[in-house]
Protein backbone atom coordinates (compact mmCIF):
# COMPACT_ATOMS: atom_id res chain seq x y z
CA UNK A 1 0.00 0.00 0.00
CA UNK A 2 2.87 2.36 -0.71
CA UNK A 3 0.76 4.51 -3.02
CA UNK A 4 -2.27 4.73 -0.76
CA UNK A 5 -3.47 8.25 0.04
CA UNK A 6 -5.91 9.04 2.81
CA UNK A 7 -7.98 12.21 3.11
CA UNK A 8 -10.05 12.86 6.20
CA UNK A 9 -13.44 14.36 5.56
CA UNK A 10 -15.59 16.01 8.18
CA UNK A 11 -19.07 17.29 7.58
CA UNK A 12 -19.66 20.43 9.53
CA UNK A 13 -22.90 21.75 10.86
CA UNK A 14 -24.55 23.73 8.13
CA UNK A 15 -23.97 27.28 9.33
CA UNK A 16 -26.77 28.62 7.27
CA UNK A 17 -30.23 28.31 8.74
CA UNK A 18 -31.76 29.64 5.53
CA UNK A 19 -30.80 26.54 3.60
CA UNK A 20 -30.37 23.40 5.67
CA UNK A 21 -29.37 21.62 2.49
CA UNK A 22 -26.26 23.71 2.28
CA UNK A 23 -23.43 21.27 2.67
CA UNK A 24 -20.29 22.17 4.53
CA UNK A 25 -17.38 19.78 4.30
CA UNK A 26 -13.81 19.95 5.39
CA UNK A 27 -11.08 17.92 3.68
CA UNK A 28 -7.76 17.34 5.40
CA UNK A 29 -4.79 15.74 3.70
CA UNK A 30 -2.32 14.65 6.40
CA UNK A 31 1.27 15.71 6.33
CA UNK A 32 3.70 13.27 4.82
CA UNK A 33 7.14 13.01 3.30
CA UNK A 34 8.08 16.41 4.62
CA UNK A 35 4.97 17.98 3.12
CA UNK A 36 2.67 19.87 5.45
CA UNK A 37 -0.97 19.11 6.11
CA UNK A 38 -3.32 20.56 3.48
CA UNK A 39 -6.91 21.69 3.88
CA UNK A 40 -9.79 22.41 1.59
CA UNK A 41 -13.42 23.25 2.33
CA UNK A 42 -16.66 22.81 0.44
CA UNK A 43 -19.20 25.35 1.58
CA UNK A 44 -22.72 25.31 0.19
CA UNK A 45 -25.34 28.03 0.29
CA UNK A 46 -22.89 30.82 -0.53
CA UNK A 47 -24.23 34.24 0.35
CA UNK A 48 -27.60 33.04 1.58
CA UNK A 49 -26.99 34.33 5.07
CA UNK A 50 -25.33 37.60 4.09
CA UNK A 51 -25.01 38.86 0.55
CA UNK A 52 -21.77 38.14 -1.25
CA UNK A 53 -20.64 40.06 -4.29
CA UNK A 54 -18.54 39.43 -7.33
CA UNK A 55 -17.95 41.26 -10.54
CA UNK A 56 -19.44 39.58 -13.55
CA UNK A 57 -17.64 40.05 -16.84
CA UNK A 58 -20.26 40.53 -19.50
CA UNK A 59 -19.91 41.28 -23.17
CA UNK A 60 -21.82 43.88 -25.12
CA UNK A 61 -21.48 43.62 -28.86
CA UNK A 62 -22.67 46.34 -31.17
CA UNK A 63 -22.31 46.91 -34.83
CA UNK A 64 -22.89 49.99 -36.92
CA UNK A 65 -22.39 48.40 -40.31
CA UNK A 66 -22.99 51.70 -42.12
CA UNK A 67 -19.90 53.07 -40.34
CA UNK A 68 -17.91 49.88 -40.60
CA UNK A 69 -17.75 49.70 -36.82
CA UNK A 70 -17.96 46.50 -34.80
CA UNK A 71 -17.47 46.75 -31.10
CA UNK A 72 -17.25 44.45 -28.18
CA UNK A 73 -17.11 45.92 -24.73
CA UNK A 74 -16.42 44.00 -21.58
CA UNK A 75 -18.79 45.24 -18.92
CA UNK A 76 -18.00 44.89 -15.24
CA UNK A 77 -21.20 44.23 -13.36
CA UNK A 78 -21.28 44.03 -9.61
CA UNK A 79 -23.75 41.39 -8.51
CA UNK A 80 -24.33 38.27 -6.53
CA UNK A 81 -24.55 35.70 -9.29
CA UNK A 82 -22.87 32.96 -7.28
CA UNK A 83 -25.37 33.17 -4.47
CA UNK A 84 -26.40 29.65 -3.46
CA UNK A 85 -23.38 28.08 -5.13
CA UNK A 86 -20.87 25.73 -3.50
CA UNK A 87 -17.56 27.37 -2.73
CA UNK A 88 -14.20 25.68 -2.62
CA UNK A 89 -12.73 27.47 0.39
CA UNK A 90 -9.15 27.67 1.55
CA UNK A 91 -7.66 27.98 -1.93
CA UNK A 92 -5.56 30.95 -0.87
CA UNK A 93 -3.92 29.12 2.06
CA UNK A 94 -0.14 29.44 1.71
CA UNK A 95 0.41 25.75 2.40
CA UNK A 96 -1.89 24.73 -0.43
CA UNK A 97 -0.43 27.27 -2.86
CA UNK A 98 3.08 26.06 -2.03
CA UNK A 99 2.28 22.37 -2.11
CA UNK A 100 3.64 19.97 -4.71
CA UNK A 101 1.51 19.74 -7.82
CA UNK A 102 0.79 16.08 -7.14
CA UNK A 103 -0.65 16.81 -3.72
CA UNK A 104 -2.65 19.81 -4.99
CA UNK A 105 -4.09 17.69 -7.72
CA UNK A 106 -4.96 14.81 -5.40
CA UNK A 107 -6.77 17.11 -2.97
CA UNK A 108 -8.76 18.82 -5.71
CA UNK A 109 -9.49 15.44 -7.26
CA UNK A 110 -10.85 14.23 -3.95
CA UNK A 111 -12.99 17.34 -3.57
CA UNK A 112 -14.45 16.88 -7.03
CA UNK A 113 -15.19 13.23 -6.28
CA UNK A 114 -17.00 14.31 -3.15
CA UNK A 115 -18.98 16.90 -5.09
CA UNK A 116 -19.95 14.24 -7.59
CA UNK A 117 -21.18 12.06 -4.77
CA UNK A 118 -23.22 14.94 -3.33
CA UNK A 119 -24.80 15.52 -6.71
CA UNK A 120 -25.48 11.82 -7.04
CA UNK A 121 -27.14 11.82 -3.63
CA UNK A 122 -29.16 14.95 -4.33
CA UNK A 123 -29.85 15.21 -8.04
CA UNK A 124 -31.73 18.44 -7.35
CA UNK A 125 -28.33 20.00 -6.71
CA UNK A 126 -27.16 19.31 -10.26
CA UNK A 127 -28.08 22.86 -11.20
CA UNK A 128 -25.66 24.31 -8.65
CA UNK A 129 -22.40 25.97 -9.54
CA UNK A 130 -19.12 25.11 -7.85
CA UNK A 131 -16.57 27.87 -7.60
CA UNK A 132 -13.35 28.88 -5.97
CA UNK A 133 -11.67 32.27 -5.95
CA UNK A 134 -7.93 32.70 -6.34
CA UNK A 135 -5.84 35.69 -5.29
CA UNK A 136 -5.40 38.24 -8.05
CA UNK A 137 -2.37 40.01 -9.43
CA UNK A 138 -1.05 42.84 -7.28
CA UNK A 139 1.85 45.20 -7.54
CA UNK A 140 5.20 44.78 -5.83
CA UNK A 141 3.86 46.52 -2.71
CA UNK A 142 0.91 44.15 -2.48
CA UNK A 143 -1.53 46.81 -3.63
CA UNK A 144 -4.28 46.03 -6.12
CA UNK A 145 -4.27 48.26 -9.22
CA UNK A 146 -7.86 47.16 -9.76
CA UNK A 147 -9.09 48.44 -6.41
CA UNK A 148 -7.16 51.67 -6.90
CA UNK A 149 -8.91 52.18 -10.24
CA UNK A 150 -12.41 51.26 -9.18
CA UNK A 151 -13.32 50.46 -5.58
CA UNK A 152 -11.13 53.14 -4.05
CA UNK A 153 -13.04 55.92 -5.83
CA UNK A 154 -16.31 54.67 -4.42
CA UNK A 155 -15.36 53.43 -0.98
CA UNK A 156 -12.77 56.08 -0.25
CA UNK A 157 -10.63 53.57 1.64
CA UNK A 158 -7.74 51.30 0.92
CA UNK A 159 -8.31 47.60 1.60
CA UNK A 160 -6.13 47.91 4.70
CA UNK A 161 -8.16 50.81 6.06
CA UNK A 162 -11.40 49.03 5.28
CA UNK A 163 -10.33 45.80 6.93
CA UNK A 164 -9.33 47.70 10.03
CA UNK A 165 -12.57 49.62 10.15
CA UNK A 166 -15.05 46.95 9.10
CA UNK A 167 -13.42 43.60 9.79
CA UNK A 168 -13.20 40.44 7.76
CA UNK A 169 -16.31 41.00 5.66
CA UNK A 170 -15.27 44.48 4.62
CA UNK A 171 -15.49 43.87 0.90
CA UNK A 172 -19.09 42.71 1.04
CA UNK A 173 -19.93 45.49 3.49
CA UNK A 174 -18.52 48.04 1.06
CA UNK A 175 -20.23 46.49 -1.97
CA UNK A 176 -23.30 48.75 -1.62
CA UNK A 177 -20.96 51.71 -2.16
CA UNK A 178 -19.49 50.28 -5.33
CA UNK A 179 -20.90 50.91 -8.82
CA UNK A 180 -24.47 49.78 -9.10
CA UNK A 181 -24.44 50.29 -12.84
CA UNK A 182 -22.21 48.34 -15.22
CA UNK A 183 -18.79 49.86 -15.83
CA UNK A 184 -16.99 49.50 -19.13
CA UNK A 185 -13.67 47.83 -18.57
CA UNK A 186 -12.13 49.93 -21.33
CA UNK A 187 -12.66 53.12 -19.28
CA UNK A 188 -10.30 51.93 -16.55
CA UNK A 189 -6.58 52.67 -16.65
CA UNK A 190 -4.52 50.14 -18.59
CA UNK A 191 -2.86 48.92 -15.41
CA UNK A 192 -6.21 47.94 -13.93
CA UNK A 193 -7.47 46.36 -17.14
CA UNK A 194 -4.33 44.26 -17.32
CA UNK A 195 -4.92 42.48 -14.02
CA UNK A 196 -8.56 41.54 -14.56
CA UNK A 197 -8.90 37.77 -14.16
CA UNK A 198 -5.14 37.41 -13.69
CA UNK A 199 -3.98 35.19 -10.91
CA UNK A 200 -1.18 35.91 -8.43
CA UNK A 201 2.04 34.13 -9.47
CA UNK A 202 1.98 32.05 -6.29
CA UNK A 203 -1.41 30.67 -7.29
CA UNK A 204 -0.84 30.07 -10.97
CA UNK A 205 -0.12 26.37 -10.60
CA UNK A 206 -3.26 25.88 -8.51
CA UNK A 207 -5.20 27.78 -11.18
CA UNK A 208 -3.99 25.28 -13.77
CA UNK A 209 -5.04 22.42 -11.52
CA UNK A 210 -8.52 23.92 -11.21
CA UNK A 211 -8.79 24.23 -14.99
CA UNK A 212 -7.74 20.63 -15.36
CA UNK A 213 -10.51 19.69 -12.96
CA UNK A 214 -12.95 21.50 -15.24
CA UNK A 215 -13.27 24.71 -13.20
CA UNK A 216 -12.65 27.43 -15.75
CA UNK A 217 -12.23 31.13 -15.05
CA UNK A 218 -13.32 34.20 -16.97
CA UNK A 219 -16.91 34.86 -15.91
CA UNK A 220 -16.46 36.47 -12.52
CA UNK A 221 -13.66 38.22 -10.70
CA UNK A 222 -13.10 39.40 -7.17
CA UNK A 223 -14.29 42.92 -6.48
CA UNK A 224 -11.09 43.87 -4.68
CA UNK A 225 -8.23 42.57 -6.79
CA UNK A 226 -10.08 41.20 -9.84
CA UNK A 227 -8.61 37.77 -9.14
CA UNK A 228 -10.25 34.98 -11.12
CA UNK A 229 -13.20 32.95 -9.91
CA UNK A 230 -12.88 29.38 -11.19
CA UNK A 231 -16.24 27.77 -11.65
CA UNK A 232 -18.12 24.89 -13.19
CA UNK A 233 -21.64 23.56 -13.16
CA UNK A 234 -21.84 20.71 -10.67
CA UNK A 235 -23.41 18.69 -13.49
CA UNK A 236 -20.22 18.94 -15.50
CA UNK A 237 -18.15 17.68 -12.56
CA UNK A 238 -20.46 14.72 -12.10
CA UNK A 239 -20.21 13.90 -15.78
CA UNK A 240 -16.47 14.32 -15.68
CA UNK A 241 -15.26 11.05 -14.22
CA UNK A 242 -16.15 7.37 -14.33
CA UNK A 243 -17.61 7.67 -10.88
CA UNK A 244 -20.24 5.23 -9.66
CA UNK A 245 -21.39 3.22 -6.70
CA UNK A 246 -19.35 0.03 -6.82
CA UNK A 247 -19.11 -3.05 -4.67
CA UNK A 248 -15.66 -3.73 -3.34
CA UNK A 249 -13.64 -6.87 -2.97
CA UNK A 250 -10.14 -7.69 -1.93
CA UNK A 251 -7.49 -7.52 -4.61
CA UNK A 252 -6.29 -11.10 -5.14
CA UNK A 253 -2.73 -11.50 -3.95
CA UNK A 254 -1.79 -13.00 -7.31
CA UNK A 255 -3.40 -10.18 -9.28
CA UNK A 256 -1.57 -9.43 -12.51
CA UNK A 257 -0.46 -5.92 -13.36
CA UNK A 258 -1.48 -3.36 -14.46
CA UNK A 259 -3.16 -1.81 -11.47
CA UNK A 260 -4.48 1.71 -11.58
CA UNK A 261 -5.42 4.29 -8.98
CA UNK A 262 -8.94 4.44 -7.61
CA UNK A 263 -10.66 6.82 -5.26
CA UNK A 264 -13.13 5.38 -2.84
CA UNK A 265 -15.32 7.30 -0.39
CA UNK A 266 -16.57 5.95 2.93
CA UNK A 267 -19.07 8.44 4.32
CA UNK A 268 -19.55 6.51 7.53
CA UNK A 269 -15.86 6.76 8.37
CA UNK A 270 -15.27 10.17 6.84
CA UNK A 271 -12.48 8.74 4.78
CA UNK A 272 -11.58 9.36 1.19
CA UNK A 273 -8.97 6.86 0.10
CA UNK A 274 -6.93 6.50 -3.04
CA UNK A 275 -5.29 3.16 -3.65
CA UNK A 276 -4.02 0.95 -6.47
CA UNK A 277 -6.63 -1.51 -7.57
CA UNK A 278 -8.47 -2.76 -10.58
CA UNK A 279 -11.96 -3.13 -11.89
CA UNK A 280 -12.91 -6.78 -12.06
CA UNK A 281 -14.81 -8.15 -15.04
CA UNK A 282 -17.97 -8.32 -12.94
CA UNK A 283 -17.75 -4.56 -12.23
CA UNK A 284 -16.51 -4.96 -8.67
CA UNK A 285 -13.65 -2.79 -7.57
CA UNK A 286 -10.73 -4.77 -6.24
CA UNK A 287 -8.66 -2.94 -3.62
CA UNK A 288 -5.90 -4.10 -1.25
CA UNK A 289 -7.33 -5.62 1.92
CA UNK A 290 -5.68 -2.93 4.05
CA UNK A 291 -7.62 -0.29 2.10
CA UNK A 292 -10.84 -2.21 2.60
CA UNK A 293 -10.21 -2.25 6.33
CA UNK A 294 -9.61 1.51 6.36
CA UNK A 295 -12.86 2.05 4.51
CA UNK A 296 -14.72 -0.27 6.87
CA UNK A 297 -16.11 -2.07 3.82
CA UNK A 298 -18.85 -4.62 4.47
CA UNK A 299 -19.81 -7.42 2.14
CA UNK A 300 -22.17 -6.21 -0.57
CA UNK A 301 -21.91 -2.59 0.50
CA UNK A 302 -21.54 -0.17 -2.42
CA UNK A 303 -19.05 2.70 -2.24
CA UNK A 304 -18.74 5.81 -4.37
CA UNK A 305 -15.58 5.34 -6.39
CA UNK A 306 -13.83 6.65 -9.42
CA UNK A 307 -10.55 6.33 -11.27
CA UNK A 308 -7.95 8.49 -9.58
Amino acid sequence: MTDTLLINVRQEAAPNALDPQAASWHLQMPAGDGSPELHLGLQGGTGLDRPRHWIHLGTRAHAAPELGLHHRQTMLMLGSNLTGAIELTGLAAPALLAAEAERQQALLDAAVLLLGWMAHQQPANLGLTVFGALPGLRDERGQSPFWAALGQHFAGMTPAQAAQRLGAHWADDLAPLLPRHPVMLSLLPAGAQAVVSQVAPAASRLAQQLVMQGLASGRHVDLVDAGPVHEAPLASLLARRGAAQRHLQALPAEAAEPLSRWWCWAPARGVLLRAEGRLADDGRLQLPSGALATLGAQLDEAFWSAPG
Binding site: A64, E66, Q73, L150, H153, F154, P182, V183, M184
Partner: peptide, 24 residues
Protein backbone atom coordinates in the same frame (compact mmCIF):
# COMPACT_ATOMS: atom_id res chain seq x y z
CA UNK B 1 -19.46 61.92 -39.10
CA UNK B 2 -21.78 63.05 -36.36
CA UNK B 3 -22.35 66.43 -37.95
CA UNK B 4 -23.91 64.77 -40.91
CA UNK B 5 -25.87 62.22 -38.94
CA UNK B 6 -27.40 64.08 -36.02
CA UNK B 7 -25.48 61.86 -33.62
CA UNK B 8 -28.28 59.33 -33.46
CA UNK B 9 -26.06 56.53 -34.65
CA UNK B 10 -24.26 56.86 -31.36
CA UNK B 11 -27.07 55.03 -29.66
CA UNK B 12 -26.01 51.80 -31.28
CA UNK B 13 -22.50 52.02 -29.95
CA UNK B 14 -22.60 53.61 -26.54
CA UNK B 15 -23.64 51.57 -23.54
CA UNK B 16 -26.76 52.59 -21.67
CA UNK B 17 -25.14 52.54 -18.25
CA UNK B 18 -24.05 55.82 -16.73
CA UNK B 19 -20.36 56.62 -16.77
CA UNK B 20 -18.83 57.11 -13.34
CA UNK B 21 -16.67 60.19 -13.71
CA UNK B 22 -14.32 59.14 -10.92
CA UNK B 23 -12.90 56.24 -12.92
CA UNK B 24 -11.90 58.43 -15.85
Amino acid sequence: LAGGRSKSFIAALMPPAPIYVAVL
